[in-house]
C-alpha cells in the first residue's frame, strides 16, 4: 500500500493505492491520526488506485472518521473501484462515510 499526501486549499487529499489489509491498514490510521493531530480537519481520501480492502481497512477508516467528527472535521472518500465499493455497500459503510465519484466532486463538497 502506498499513501500520498497533498495539501490543497480546501482539503488534504490523501491518495491510497494497492491493498488496505490487516498488515497495511494500521499504517493508514497512524498517518491520518498524525495529520489530524497536526491540525488538519478536512480530508478527501482518493481510493482510485485501491485494489482491495478488508475489515481492517474499514476499521481504520471508522476510527479516523470518529476522530474527525469529534473535532468537527470531515472525511470524504472518492473514486472507489467496483470491488472496493462492494465492500463499502454490503457493510453499510457507504452510509457512514460520504462517497464521491471524483476528487473534484469531493473537494467541492467541503
Amino acid at each position: 500500500m502506498e499513501i500520498v499526501y497533498a495539501k490543497e486549499e480546501k482539503a488534504s487529499v490523501v491518495s491510497v493505492s494497492g491493498r488496505m489489509d490487516g498488515v497495511s491498514a494500521p499504517d493508514f490510521e497512524q498517518k491520518m491520526v498524525s495529520w489530524i493531530n497536526e491540525g488538519e480537519s478536512n480530508f478527501v481520501v482518493d481510493f482510485g488506485s485501491l485494489d482491495y480492502i478488508s475489515s481492517a481497512g474499514l476499521r481504520s477508516i471508522l476510527v479516523t472518521a470518529k476522530k474527525l467528527k469529534a473535532k468537527n472535521g470531515r472525511l470524504l472518500l472518492c473514486s472507489l473501484k467496483d470491488t472496493v465499493k462492494e465492500v463499502f455497500e454490503i457493510s453499510g459503510f457507504s452510509s457512514i462515510v460520504p462517497i464521491f465519484d471524483s476528487v473534484k466532486a469531493a473537494v467541492e463538497e467541503i
Binding site: S54, S55, A65, K66, K69, S91
Partner: peptide, 13 residues
C-alpha cells in the same frame, strides 16, 4: 457513525 462498533465485520464478510 457514533454508534457503529469497530468489530464484528470480519465474520460477516
Amino acid at each position: 457513525i457514533s454508534e457503529r462498533k469497530v468489530g464484528g465485520l470480519g465474520i460477516f464478510f
